[in-house]
Amino acid sequence: MAALALSFALTVSARPAPAQSVGPVLSDLAVRLASMTAITGYEQAMIDSIVAIVPGAKRDRAGNAVVVLGDGARRRLVACPVSEPGFVVGQVRGDGWLTLRRAPGRVSPLVERELEGQRVTVFGRRGPVPGVVGVRSVHLTRGRGITGEGTFTVDSAYVDIGAASMAEATAAGVAVLSPLAATKRPQRYGHDRLAAPVAGRRSACAALVLAARAAAAAQGMVPRSDAVVVAFVVEQELLGRGLATVANTRGPFTESIVLDVKAGAMGAIAQEADTALAHRWPALGSVARWSVGARYVGSTVESTSLAGADSLRAALTRWIGGAK
């Protein structure tokens, strides 16, 4: 994981300031964030990378990446969840196969069923280990009373990393609790689409990274009366713990924006009040959810518009600057 984080940080930080070339940087950053894995509770590599590329950002006690822009009394918050559904190794069998357990939070049926017969990456203690989720050979189902396609769940998954024994798997750093997710292979297609697991949120986080970098680089963007807290929050899939910590340690806020994804027209940004969230954590103040429109939400090919993400970046930059 550390290697992934370093590579990401070096690549992005070497680019010119976003104010000069926002478009291409946003595309690259969205693809890079979409290529990373941040399973709920195991988001450290992603947070390390964000801390490295957002000036002034620090990791807080919950593991969020947080930067405060301005030092006024009127506190505002914008937060982007980085976590994603995923799995951990539940058991390393004596014959080298791995079985799985869902990480906490909501794992959609699509995420599970799209894991069958696919490449996965196990984030072992000695680095990423490639593997596959086993599937019945189509040839061997024929003529044997086995109905072709069944309903796959992770409870019946066997992960093959090439190990012939538990010792071989362990030597590669794979153990119980090693995080595991589908191997990321973001796909650009159409005019401006990006497809990947949680592509909507990752493109939104990319927009926020660039907006925060622009604000940090431009002295005086944030009104003197304000302090804007920019947070990349963890464990959103686990009762929103990261966001709760920001609310309780950095609030109270007069207003908060939480970035999200929503099934709908790609390129559109839906802005809706979230009274439930405001009620749950009053320290957030009034809460708005800004959602990027996406197709195939919750699937391995969740598809979003990079032009839409760039519009979000522009809107966030204006909001950080005090625009209503």
Partner: peptide
């Protein structure tokens, strides 16, 4: 490039 459209999670598997 493109994507294979995901199947509705409630849809029945392809019969043999």
């Amino acid at each position: 490039p493109g994507v294979f459209v995901p199947r509705d999670s409630a849809a029945a598997p392809t019969p043999p």
